[in-house]
Computed example of a mutant assay.
Amino acid sequence: MADAASQVLLGSGLTVLSQPLMYVKVLVQVGYEPLPPTLGRNIFGRQVYQLPGLFSYAKHIVKVDGRVGLFKGLAPRLCSSAIGTVVHSKVLQLFPPDSSFPLQPGASKKEPVSSLEQVLKETSREMVARSAATLITHPFHVITLRCMVQFIGRETKYSGTLSAFATIYREEGILGFFAGLIPRLLGDILSLWLCNMLAYLINTYALENGVSTMTEMKSYSQAVTGFFASMLTYPFVLVSNLMAVNNCGLAGGLLPYAPTYSSWLDCWSQLHREGNMSRGNSLFFRKVPAGKRYVWEERRFR
């Protein structure tokens, strides 16, 4: 219990600290650009037109809503973080690390599993735990995103967590709480497997044992492969967030910012055609989209 409580407290602290970052990222993901591009220099010193980065974007939000405005959607996100941590921990307890996974009747522990087999079992175990946590907390995730996107149209439709639950159920039914769930689950699962398998391959075949430097490098391989996997699976995150706010009655989920997508696959294909699969992935050194022009009245590129 003490361990679970400490994890919840740590997760809550990290959630509060990262809230402004996520807020800006979500607004960029939906295509909202409140500030016009400015002439700056890239890392090579060349003059290019750049979009405002994280700090300029955050300053604009503070100018409009004050510093408290940077924390819109924090309450449901904290609920999601706390509940997700507890669910994740409880599911892992159901499948101890030394148990055979998946559990099979009559399974015996005759021989120690190979390194690869252990990685497969541990990854499967973690996949189930993460998926369960995502499934349970996704309604809070949807509310968080919609609270943030209200900044675009200055709406107050989702003003509280409980009232937001009532609004979504009244207008969209149960399915409304799970908008964007499929691409989010797929992205989480793919990212987990890519991260763990790449780390296993690097530790097994690229780094030799017995050398202190190599041992230290192995400890960092998981973080490096995790970053690489998150980059590859970012389109799933983008599509999931767009589907969570799409056609929900907010300005950020309607034209001109987003068409009404028939499914997440439709959203994926349209983003791919427009070359927007990585929109919002970087909040620094943001280049003006090629072939696009900034429309001040709409605060977006088209």
Rank of each mutant, 00 (worst) to 15 (best):
I61V: 15
I189T: 14
L250E: 02
T215C: 08
T38K: 06
E297P: 04
S114Q: 08
P139F: 01
L35W: 02
E274D: 13
S219R: 14
T134S: 09
L14F: 14
R146E: 02
A82S: 14
V87W: 13
G253W: 01
Y220D: 06
V211Y: 12
A132P: 06
V224A: 12
V237M: 06
L145N: 09
P52G: 04
L185H: 03
A133L: 05
A244N: 06
T123I: 06
Q222H: 13
V224L: 15
L120W: 03
F177E: 03
G226L: 03
E155R: 05
K90S: 07
F178W: 14
A164E: 00
Y234A: 02
Y23M: 10
F228R: 05
L27W: 04
L232E: 04
L242D: 02
V91Q: 00
W264D: 00
M243T: 03
Q29C: 09
R170N: 12
T134G: 02
F55L: 13
L254K: 10
L116N: 07
R293Q: 11
E122R: 07
L283R: 13
R154P: 01
W268V: 06
Y200P: 09
V113F: 03
Y23F: 11
Q118G: 12
S56Q: 12
V119S: 10
F228N: 02
P256H: 08
E155M: 06
D188Y: 03
Y169I: 05
Y220E: 04
A166E: 11
K287M: 11
P112M: 14
L9I: 12
E297D: 13
F140V: 00
L175M: 10
A251S: 14
E126H: 09
A258E: 11
R299S: 10
A166C: 10
G249Y: 07
L185Q: 15
S56I: 02
T204D: 08
F301P: 05
